[in-house]
């Protein structure tokens, strides 16, 4: 599939028919359908299995793999001209923007409940009459208390300690430090790549991946701690809901980002990427910056404030 057409490399490369996308669509629907049946079955306690979901995931995985290898092969064959690469740049940029908006929905929800819903339920603000239904509820976010006693809140929340010195024992602080430094290491890896310093590239990329993995490990620790010691669960009211949806989806994105960086590592080791042509790497690094920025927002709004 790698022959160039008449116009030569200056022309925009329009790929031929491809079997991959429709397979992905098919895999996606199996995955989603399987997941939905599983959830519904587990809710009613009926027999449930994840077979369909895994078949779907398998199809998606294989298809994505061949999609990316195709693109890489085409690129090596010189089919991707500067204009096509710009398309990738726009594509990745707007994709990240869409991710930003996805998180914005959850940040917005957090903002709304903290500033409106919870105070109203606790008798403050414009709709404070609502407290009529929840006598005795006081709207203290940091306490994690809930309006209804049917929904016991956590024994303790994840809020940051009040004195800066005790931050040294505060896990999220270290996680922040880790992600923040990983932004630098990925940047150095990129500089290495651009200046032809393959050793530096490999080393810094390796460090970044390691930082990502450590972050995920600590995050898992934190979750276990929250679930087992603090009683802070998905079910413990709005504090737990916002906490887990934000940190959870972030963690999921870090996992994805780390995986992407690992794939970059594989490609680096195979000798891919040149100082002036390495969009695959750049895209992953942008994604990584994005994940970092989201964490900064998280640290500020979920933990500190």
């Amino acid at each position: 599939m790698t022959e160039q057409h008449a116009g030569g490399q200056d022309n925009y490369f329009v790929p031929h028919d491809s079997k991959i996308p429709v397979w992905i669509a098919f895999g996606l629907i199996l995955f989603m359908f399987g997941f939905a049946s599983f959830l519904n079955a587990s809710k009613t306690g009926a027999n449930s299995n994840l077979l369909l979901l895994w078949i779907g995931a398998g199809i998606i995985g294989v298809s994505l793999y061949s999609w990316f290898t195709n693109v890489i092969r085409e690129n090596h064959a010189g089919l991707a001209n500067a204009q096509l690469r710009r398309s990738y740049v726009w594509g990745m940029g707007w994709f990240i923007f869409s991710e930003v908006m996805f998180f914005a929905a959850f940040f917005g929800a957090l903002y709304y409940v903290r500033n409106f819903a919870v105070p109203w339920l606790g008798g403050e603000g414009d709709k404070g009459v609502s407290n009529y239904l929840w006598p005795g509820f006081s709207p203290d976010w940091a306490s994690g208390e809930n309006p209804s006693t049917y929904r016991p809140g956590p024994a303790e929340t994840m809020a940051a300690p009040s004195s800066i010195t005790s931050w040294l024992a505060y896990l999220p602080f270290w996680n922040t430090a880790i992600l923040l430094s990983s932004s630098f290491t990925i940047h150095w890896a990129h500089t290495g790549l651009k200046s032809g310093n393959r050793k530096g590239l490999t080393a810094w990329l390796g460090v970044t991946i390691a930082l990502g993995v450590i972050f995920l490990f600590l995050q898992a620790e934190e979750y276990i701690h929250a679930y087992e010691q603090l009683g802070l669960t998905l079910g413990s009211g709005i504090y737990g809901s916002t906490f887990y949806i934000l940190t959870g989806f972030h963690g999921f994105h870090v996992t994805l980002g780390t995986f992407m960086l690992m794939m970059c590592m594989v490609r680096v080791l195979k000798g891919h990427f040149s100082p002036d042509d390495h969009f695959g790497f750049e895209a992953c690094s942008w994604y990584w910056y994005f994940v970092d920025v989201v964490w900064m927002g998280l640290f500020l709004f979920v933990y500190v404030l």
């Binding site: 109203w120 339920l121 709709k127 009459v129 609502s130 009529y132 239904l133």
Partner: peptide, 9 residues
């Protein structure tokens, strides 16, 4: 609107 858990006036 009559909203569960909240009071409108």
């Amino acid at each position: 609107d009559a909203i569960p858990g909240f009071v409108n006036e």
